[in-house]
Design a protein around this nucleic acid. Sequence first.
DNA 1: CCCTGATTCGC
DNA 2: GCGAATCAGG
Length: 159
Amino acid sequence: MSASVWTVERIRRLIALWGEGRTAAAIADRLGPEISRCAVLGKVHRLGLVRAAPARPPSRPRGASAFPKRRFQQVAPSRPASQVSSPAAPERPEATVLSVRRGQCRWPYGTPGSVDFGLCGHAVARGAFCAAHAAIGYQTRPMSAEGLMRLAGFGHDPS
DNA sequence: CCCTGATTCGC
DNA sequence: GCGAATCAGG
């Protein structure tokens, strides 16, 4: 017979002790060696006994193996379909941070700080980028109706 | 580094 | 349902 470790008696004591404001570790101690602090926390949570939440803004997705190793996401300029039909972008950087001059595309290549880091260097078409990279970097996303109204000077002001 | 409670997920 | 793992904050 596999009686749950959480007997009625233990649950009763848990509720009482939790109500007294004891800490999970202290409760785990009193409930016996079978009950760990985590077990207490888990049970408390499961019972919905969560002590008055101090309005803690849920900062992030958390929990066991939420993101075990994928914690760092590669953040690199993504290359959507726009690049396919755009004028050629160089395979390798043709300028460096030090060498790049006015009129040269400043699209980054490689990892900043590493020796191979460089800049596109092609002739600027728009802003700081050549045509190919401007197509990627200056994508204008469709603006919401609210955004358009705000931009037009019609703030949504009910009063 | 110790502690706290909170949260998630594999079992 | 259970609780270890892992989080943020003190």
